[in-house]
Simulated assay, not measured.
Amino acid sequence: MKIIVYNFNNQYALSRKQVEAIKAAMPKEFFLPVSEFHLTHTRVGAEVFEYSAKEKIVYFAFPVKEKTQESTSAAIDELLVGLARIKSPTRWEYPLGERERASHEEFVKGWKVRCLDAATK
C-alpha cells in the first residue's frame, strides 16, 4: 500500500509512520482493498475516511494544529470505522448516520487499544 501525504500547512492527527504501524498491527485483510492511502487536508466526501472502491484509494482528512493524544485517539477511531465500512455495505461520500456508526462500535473497541499502542510507540 502506497501512502501519499499532502503536506501544506498543518500536521495530521496520524503520520505516515503511524498509519504504517497500525497497518502492521492489524491482519492484512483489512488493508488489502487499499492500494493508496492519502493523508490530506481537505475532505473528499462527508466523512474523515472516504474510500473509492473503483480506484482502491482511501482519503483520510484529519489535519490538526497541535498533535495530542486525544487527536490521535479520535483519528484512530475514524480510521477503524472507515476500515469496517470497506467490508460492509455502505454509501461513501454521505454523512454516516448514528445507527451505522454504532454498528461499527464493536469493531473499533476490539482494535482500538492495539492500534493506539502501535501508533504511539
Rank of each mutant, 00 (worst) to 15 (best):
K87F: 11
V48Q: 06
K87T: 04
R85T: 00
V19P: 04
P27L: 12
M26S: 09
E55I: 01
K67T: 09
K54V: 02
G45Y: 03
Y59M: 07
L79G: 01
D77Q: 06
R101W: 11
F37W: 14
K17H: 07
V108D: 07
F30E: 02
K109T: 04
Q69M: 05
E47H: 13
Q69K: 13
R16N: 08
E29Y: 06
F37L: 08
A24K: 14
V64W: 02
R85S: 14
E50W: 07
K65N: 13
A21S: 14
A74N: 08
V19F: 04
A25T: 09
Y59C: 05
L96N: 09
N10K: 08
L32R: 09
L96K: 10
E105T: 12
Y59S: 08
N10Y: 05
A102F: 12
V64G: 02
A46R: 14
E93P: 00
M26Y: 09
V5E: 11
A13W: 05
K67E: 07
A46P: 05
S35A: 11
K65M: 01
K112P: 01
G110M: 07
T68S: 14
Q18Y: 01
T120N: 14
T120H: 02
V58N: 02
Y51M: 06
I3V: 15
T40C: 15
Y94V: 14
A46L: 09
I22V: 12
K67H: 08
K54P: 00
P33E: 07
V108A: 13
K67Q: 15
